[in-house]
Design a protein around this nucleic acid. Structure first.
Length: 561
RNA sequence: GCGCUCGUAGCUCAGCGGAUUAGAGCAUCUGACUUCGGAUCAGAAGGCCGGGGGUUCGAAUCCCUCCGAGCGCGCCA
């Protein structure tokens, strides 16, 4: 990256200065960082090192800056000059050549432009959505789905091996699932004309009626007369398997595909839960009280009270299963776990971390991302979004209404740290204004110009063979600057686990492209062929960057719209 | 009551220690079609960055406090 070269220059200058005894510091320990100034007048890159060093060196920032600048190599066709500004900023002005070279690089790296290997060797497991199999994927889950999937793309882009996982809460002691099975059985019997009521607090959603119809069609009335208990267990498994199937379909329509669907029930059948509990006992992290088994979460994770692992009725709690589950993740070779949860589970973070620690694993290797709530609005009223009451808004509906691209982009638009209000009507209405189209149009526009060139029998030239130094128009340089930012933007977004930065960035690229398009014609009459070719090459480079960027977001790049 | 999170333009949000003008989009108002497709571009207007203290050369950004909103505090998941 270009800033690495600048860093090397600065480090060189520091070494010289400290060699002369002007600055007294351990050069290898100095952390040098660059930023791209908001205002172009402040150069291509700015460095605040002098201010940062001011305290440790006991010298005024501007004086330090001067020493560094005096010892830095400039005027060699790469770095034009360095200026000191304001309280002690060093502003670096590069020759436009470096921007022109970006075109060559983009062309050469093509699909790989923007990627790097900084996370090589890291094996990351991202677990997200993991909705109970008691209803369809809702728009509320859409946020986690878009976030998790895109984070996966991002981390993979910087070299990690990424696996996406959905945890299916299908354990036998799930009361929700039992209730769901009973509700389904009631629907089934109702369809057969029997006068059966839904269980109290049962699941009211229409989707259960649909599933009941499927069952009726496939198996007829053969479950009508069987003993209640037998039917209950049968319908419980029907309910969950049908639901999971549907969840898979809905998520795939949203562009999310998991590497694994991990069943909680497997943890039990493989006795991993009991083994985990035994381990905790053996290591003194669990104790008995009031007939139950407790985990020392106070000691392990500063919890305000200890938590139950095994109830007095001998059923394990969620803590036990989840600890065992995370141990399983580590055992599969992942050295970094990312869990995406809704903010309503934040009270649970400590417990899980305690559980992980009690099993001898490193709690810090597990990052838990809490997405703020998505509040539902319908007809101007808040909706609780309860699956039981059947008032959820399915993600499927949104995807069908506005399309996968707009739906995904919608959720990636802002940080997961802010509470979002979701109004389906508004989302539909706004889909025409969704910035995703602005970005996609930028891509289509590039394709269009290139296509037009071919129609005019102009061969689209390679950036390598073009007179790049002709690109000196403000809008050309602005666009090139944006394209040059891409690798850094990917890195930052991945480091911060913040995909929403990319949705902001893609709009900036779009803007730069559209402005360039307006002001810098390539194929109009009277444009010098050399300039025309250089501009065509720039369109092509932009096309590649936008396509790569949208790809990271899981959004398609149409050639025409 | 205790804990976690969030308060930035009319609305939806970026910015999360840096540069005397705090940025986008939508909505509002003006302009640009003899066009490489206007799903575009140019411009205007709109803010004591919830209030108050503090740390710092420098704060929307870090700390404290108050106010407001959301969410948690089960032998539920």
């Amino acid at each position: 990256m270009i800033t690495d070269q600048l860093k090397a220059r600065v480090r060189e200058a520091l070494t010289i200065a400290s060699g002369k005894g002007i600055l007294q510091l351990n050069v290898s320990k100095v952390d040098i960082s660059f930023e791209t100034p908001r205002n172009k007048e402040f150069g291509d890159f700015a460095c605040n090192l002098a201010m940062a060093l001011s305290k440790t060196l006991g010298l005024p920032p501007r004086e330090i800056a001067k020493t560094i600048v005096d010892n830095i190599v400039t005027g060699d066709g790469f770095l034009e000059r360095v200026e000191i500004a304001g309280p002690g900023f060093m502003n670096f002005y590069l020759t436009p050549d470096w921007l022109h070279e970006v075109m060559v690089r983009i062309e050469r790296e093509d699909d790989f432009y923007g990627r790097n290997r900084s996370l090589e060797g890291e094996k990351v497991l991202i677990e997200f959505v993991s909705a109970n199999p008691t209803g369809p994927i809702s728009v509320v889950n859409g946020r986690a789905a878009a976030l998790g999937d895109t984070l996966g793309n991002l981390l993979a882009a910087i070299g990690a091996i990424v696996s996406r996982e959905f945890y299916v809460n299908d354990a036998l002691n799930s009361t929700q699932l039992n209730l769901m099975g009973d509700s389904l059985a009631a629907r089934y019997l109702q369809l057969l004309g029997r006068d059966v009521e839904l269980p109290e607090d049962g699941y009211q959603g229409e989707y259960l009626v649909d599933i009941a119809k499927d069952i009726l069609q496939e198996f007829g009335n053969r479950f009508e007369t069987m003993p209640d208990e037998e039917r209950a267990s049968l319908f419980r498994s029907f309910a969950s398997s049908k639901m999971i199937e549907q969840q898979k379909t809905d998520l795939e329509a949203f562009g999310v595909k998991y590497d694994t669907w991990f069943y909680e029930s497997d943890l039990y059948s493989n006795e991993e839960v009991s083994a985990a509990i035994q381990y905790m006992r053996d290591h003194g992290y669990a104790y008995e009280k009031d007939g139950a088994l407790w985990l020392k979460t106070m000691e392990l994770a500063n919890d305000d009270q200890d938590r139950v692992l095994v109830r007095s009725n001998e059923k394990e709690t969620y803590v036990a299963a989840d600890a065992a589950y995370h141990l399983n993740k580590f055992k599969r070779g992942f050295n970094r776990l990312i869990d995406i949860w809704g903010a309503d589970h934040h009270g649970y973070v400590m417990r899980l971390k305690a559980g992980i620690k009690a099993l001898g694993c490193d709690p810090d290797a597990c990052e838990i991302i809490l997405t703020q709530m998505v509040l539902l609005m319908r007809d101007g009223e808040m909706v609780r979004g309860s699956k039981r009451a059947g008032d959820i808004i399915p993600l499927k509906d949104l995807v069908e209404e506005v399309g996968k691209d707009a739906a995904r982009f919608y959720f990636l638009l802002n940080s997961y740290e802010t509470t979002a209000t979701f109004d389906l009507e508004l989302a539909k209405k706004q889909s025409n204004d969704n910035p995703v189209f602005y970005a996609q149009y930028a891509h289509a526009r590039c394709c269009n110009v290139l296509r037009k060139a071919e129609e005019m029998n102009v061969t689209v030239p390679k950036g390598t063979h073009v007179k790049r130094s002709l690109l000196i128009h403000d809008k050309e340089l602005d666009l090139l600057r944006k394209l040059a930012d891409f690798p850094g933007e990917v890195q930052t977004a991945a480091d911060m686990l913040a995909p929403h930065r990319l949705t902001a960035y893609v709009r900036e690229i779009g803007q730069a492209l559209h402005q360039f398009y307006e002001e810098c014609p390539a194929l109009k009459e009277g444009v010098d062929p050399n300039l025309r070719d250089a501009r065509l090459a720039l369109f092509d480079a932009t096309r590649i960057v936008v396509r790569n960027l949208l790809g990271l977001l899981g959004v398609s790049s149409p050639q025409r719209m």
